[in-house]
Design a protein around this nucleic acid. Structure first.
Lengths: 157, 157
DNA sequence: TATTGTTATACTCTATAACTATA
DNA sequence: TATAGTTATAGAGTATAACAATA
């Protein structure tokens, strides 16, 4: 593996840094892209106090009113224990509310409040701009293709 | 936006959860995919104690011996302050070593030790298996395409 | 027994500000 | 002034184990 390949000088500080093996790893590129997207998301929605996870919750709730905490978490890949402070956060800001589930005293049905629905719409617009900027070098077909390819990554393989 | 669309029942617990708006967001899919890849990486290399960030460091060092801490960090998108405990970790396990840089008393040249090079090779093989499993639903062309599309995400846009 | 939600805790990655010593 | 490395600290996401109340 290291036999007769051209070698960089012992001090690489002066020249280019070779990415080499890392360039071929999908995981590396996915992680770097995710970090970049999350960082820009956080920056663009900082004043609203909405992070990617919280927005995902608002989004699912807007289309699945009455869903309970556990199913919301499973949908988003968030564990039960980690849902508690997230739900608390949105509740404390009046963006969601809990309602009793008739027939199951363990669970709560979660709903967006009017403020929560308004926040969702506002985030929606900001995020559209954020994605347009970050993905400006991808046309519509490429964006769809990217989503399609990412969806083929199999967490259960 | 919410006028005459078909509505799910108030209690969505019984039926399918609609992803809706989230499905069209590249950022959401990138984040989920990254989490899945990182989680599997961690699981597969747990006994080696190598996480994605540490492997990336070993990888860059294997191809750029003598690079200093700052440039290594910039290459990987890791901030100076966050490099300190990472370098410490690898040093403490004898996987990398520091050498003085003649002509600059501030900097250290980082090098893989023999143990570090061996660890890199072992990780390399494990990660190849990890990627093959996680990406089993993507052929070679699709993996290249995925890397290409991810590379077009512009952190500086 | 299983499920819903909770508490407590720990680890990793990321972020900022401020410091030192050298350049 | 700028750079290399450091310290301290905080926020966010994820992970596990154990518990109470209910199914």
């Amino acid at each position: 593996m290291t036999e007769r390949m051209p070698q960089v000088t012992a001090d690489a500080n002066q020249g280019e840094v070779r990415a080499g093996h890392l360039s071929g790893l999908v995981g590396y590129h996915v992680r770097r892209a995710s970090n970049a997207m999350v960082a820009d998301f956080a920056e663009q929605l900082q004043d609203l106090g909405i992070r990617p996870t919280l927005f995902a919750m608002l989004s699912i709730l807007s289309e699945n009113p009455g869903i309970n905490q556990g199913l919301l978490g499973r949908t988003l890949g968030i564990q039960r224990a980690n849902m508690v402070p997230l739900v608390s956060d949105l509740m404390g800001r009046g963006l969601i509310e809990r309602r009793d589930v008739p027939g199951d005293k363990r669970a709560f049905a979660l709903h967006l409040t009017r403020a929560g629905a308004a926040m969702f719409e506002q985030c929606h617009d900001r995020i559209a701009a954020h994605e347009d900027r970050m993905l400006s070098r991808l046309d519509e077909a490429e964006r769809d293709q990217l989503i399609d390819l990412l969806g083929k990554i199999d967490p259960d393989a």
